[in-house]
């Protein structure tokens, strides 16, 4: 086998492993909405930076151990000042600014055009979703129906212990705290079915407390929701 063939196999193998290692119906690294996508991007940037920093620190330590003479020209003061303080400060400052800006974009602040709001209530061990946009009782259990491509604010609370609403491919998680209402803003770019789990430990049923988010094409949303609510009441 030629060297380039080995190289190609290696590259394929590594990429294969990476893709195989990162996808999945609950993977934060296979985003299906803008919130999850920007956080995934933040992760890849932080990962790259971390690998570089890790290599620098461990490399310097190893070098200082095996070849101290190579580094002996640098005074302790400079090591601490530049390695310990300057390097970490610069990296942290840049990261903090980026993360803050991103966070500000993701939080559910009031919009001129108020987005669709849905209620999510965690209860040992089911998720109850209701829809203020629908008149009359509107309940779907363990399935949340949303229109695809639209901004949705999920208002999350709990009627017993703390749970956490998390659909990793769409957005980060938000805790369902009894007596409080928290909001997570999400968008599913395309119609489809997205899985979600309760992320905060909530007793013996914690593992089974999962749910599904179904994103419908916007034009079919109202009908689909009405059907789902009707199916729920006849059950």
């Amino acid at each position: 086998m030629s060297r380039s063939a080995i190289k190609r196999i290696c590259v394929l193998g590594v990429t294969g492993l990476l893709t195989a290692g990162c996808t999945g119906p609950l993977s934060t690294l296979e985003p299906a909405g803008p919130a999850a996508a920007s956080i995934a991007l933040l992760w890849w940037i932080m990962l790259a930076g971390s690998v570089v920093l890790f290599a620098i620190v461990i490399g310097l330590f190893t070098l200082a151990f095996y070849r101290p003479a190579w580094l002996a020209g640098i005074s302790a003061r400079n090591w601490i000042l530049h390695g310990g303080i300057t390097m970490s400060s610069v990296v942290i400052l840049l990261l903090l600014v980026a993360a803050f800006v991103l966070g500000e974009r993701l939080v559910a602040r009031p919009l001129a055009d108020p987005p669709l709001a849905v209620q999510a209530n965690g209860r040992m061990w089911v998720w109850e979703f209701s829809y203020p946009s629908v008149e009359g009782p509107s309940l779907t259990t363990n399935v949340l129906h949303i229109p695809a491509g639209e901004i949705v604010d999920v208002r999350v609370t709990s009627s017993d212990v703390i749970h956490s609403f998390w659909s990793p491919r769409l957005a980060g998680k938000i805790d369902a705290v009894p007596g409080h209402e928290n909001v997570v803003r999400l968008t599913a770019e395309r119609p489809g079915t997205y899985r979600g789990v309760c992320a905060e430990f909530c007793g013996v049923g914690h593992t089974q407390m999962h749910f599904t988010v179904i994103a419908h094409p916007p034009e079919a949303y109202e009908q689909a929701l009405a059907d789902a609510i009707a199916a729920e009441t006849t059950e």
């Binding site: 200082a64 095996y66 101290p68 005074s75 090591w79 303080i85």
Partner: peptide
């Protein structure tokens, strides 16, 4: 954001220790 910044800043005192160790090695005979 405030708590996030404070948390990240912990890396600085940690970094000071690690680089003090590196300096100690570099100026010694490990």
């Amino acid at each position: 954001a405030f708590f996030s910044a404070a948390s990240a800043l912990v890396a600085i005192p940690t970094g000071i220790q690690i680089f003090a160790w590196i300096a100690t090695l570099a100026h010694g005979r490990p």
